[in-house]
Amino acid sequence: MIEVEDVYFTYPNGIEALKGISLTIKNGEFVAIMGQNGAGKTTLVKHFNGLLKPTKGKVSIDGVETTKVSVATLARKVGFVFQNPDHQLFSETVEDEIAFALKNFGFKETVIKKRVSWALNLLGLTKYRKTSPFMLSGGERKRVALASVLAWDPKILILDEPTIGQDYQQKEKLRQFILQLKAQRKTIIIVTHDVEFVAECNPRVILMREGKIVADGEASKILTTPEVLNQAFIVPPQIAQIFFQLSDLGFPRNIIDIYEAREILLKAIRRKTM
């Protein structure tokens, strides 16, 4: 469980990035943190694995304050995949990259081998096993970064902008994959701008603006409240847009799922034509 109590954070250059954040994320929850560039999303999640410590207030992971343990200890529990994979990749081959953290955590050679193969396979990277990560495309490098974190099986997984540079099929795989992790009671936190992806996943959404939380709730509620979305510089998903535009005809406004949209529209159309 992640507990954040009235956290403030000021960068050394004086920029106040978090201004009184309180929230609780339970084990097994799937949360999307959204908001404008510079709203403090990445700063907030960097507190979850102790990369940043609050200037005021406290952050605890499973009851232990992040100021009381090392980042290395926390990392075993909280895996962090960065926005820009180039900040995290450095090995000569994809295989070495994935094995690196496992070696650091002191896993046995046989376990490392298995875990590496498992992670490669999971993210469709087996054919690149011996390739240099820097020869791969942006989207592929992103998957290598994800594989290297998943390999050590952290309990809490933080993904900063996981869908950037990913094509539709990869996103669909990522979605399936997050749902699988969720079924295993992992906690998954994504920082994202991708409204369509969030609309398809339907997680709990936390909306941030200027270092504060402005909304917190189900995706189908938050992504269909234009007033809040505007504040956070989010464009509603296309399905929600269609239903806002049709709201004068008496349609519900909280629709983000394409199949739900289909059912509602079909009923209305058939009623007219019969």
Binding site: E172, Q238, R262, I269
Partner: peptide, 20 residues
């Protein structure tokens, strides 16, 4: 596996699958 706009996809489903 190109991610076509949801508006386009909804059009396709209603028109092709449902005969609207």
């Amino acid at each position: 596996g190109v991610g076509i706009p949801k508006a386009t996809r909804l059009y396709q489903i209603l028109k092709e699958d449902d005969g609207v």
